[in-house]
Computed example of a mutant assay.
Amino acid sequence: MRREAIWATKLMHEMYNRVHNEETKNKGLIIIKALYGKLPSGVTQHNVDKEDDGENDSLPDDVIDVTVPVQCLVKNSKLVLQISSKAQLPGFYDTCLGEDKHLSIKYHYIDEIYTCTISDEESLNIPS
């Protein structure tokens, strides 16, 4: 599943560039960072504030960077995710079977930066 998600993400780069460029041009919804997986004990969101150096070696084994797949889901400056496991989305996979997972997103919308975190089965509608 991990290899399939990595492969799918690599295939999404052209679409990511197109969506990102369009959203940038329109001052729309830009996903700065999105992380999916198990939260460390005692915290309420993944560390989406850490600078992206292009490497994900510093992420725990049970957390994956899903910035590219999430940006590809943006349509007309909106991101809507239904109530279901995010592990089923393209570019995602279940990082820790049987454990609680969360999706944390840092995004830019109309000159403001926001962060949000949802549980795996929760719906999401941003910006809102």
Rank of each mutant, 00 (worst) to 15 (best):
S58P: 00
E14F: 11
L103Y: 01
A87F: 05
N125M: 13
P69Y: 09
Q82I: 13
L124Y: 04
N21E: 13
K27W: 03
L89R: 04
S128C: 12
N26K: 05
G54P: 04
A34C: 07
K78I: 11
D94M: 12
Q82H: 10
Q71P: 00
D62R: 03
D53E: 11
M1T: 15
A34M: 08
S123G: 11
C72A: 04
L79S: 09
V66D: 02
I113F: 01
V74S: 05
L81S: 11
L97Y: 08
H13K: 13
K75M: 04
Y107R: 03
D65S: 14
M12I: 08
Y36C: 11
Y107D: 03
V19A: 09
L97F: 08
D111N: 12
T115C: 11
E14M: 11
R3L: 14
V63H: 01
K27M: 09
K38W: 00
K78H: 11
L81R: 02
W7H: 13
L29P: 00
V43M: 03
M12E: 02
L29T: 02
D57L: 12
D120R: 03
R3I: 15
H102F: 13
I64R: 02
K38E: 14
E112Y: 07
C72V: 11
N17P: 02
L11W: 09
Y36S: 13
Y114R: 12
L73F: 06
L97M: 09
V74L: 07
A5H: 03
N56S: 13
S128V: 10
S77C: 09
V80D: 02
K86L: 08
R2C: 06
I31T: 05
I126H: 04
D61C: 09
S123F: 12
V70C: 06
T9K: 08
Y36W: 12
H20N: 07
P69G: 14
Y107A: 01
I64S: 07
Y107T: 03
D111Q: 09
V80P: 00
K50M: 11
N47P: 00
K38T: 14
E122K: 10
D53R: 06
P90T: 15
H108P: 00
Q88H: 11
M12R: 02
E112S: 10
V68A: 08
S58M: 08
G42P: 01
N17G: 10
E121N: 10
M1A: 15
T117Q: 06
K10L: 13
T9R: 11
P60E: 15
H20P: 00
Y93N: 10
H46E: 08
T9V: 12
A5I: 05
V70K: 02
H20R: 09
V74G: 00
L11D: 06
Q71G: 06
I118A: 11
V48K: 05
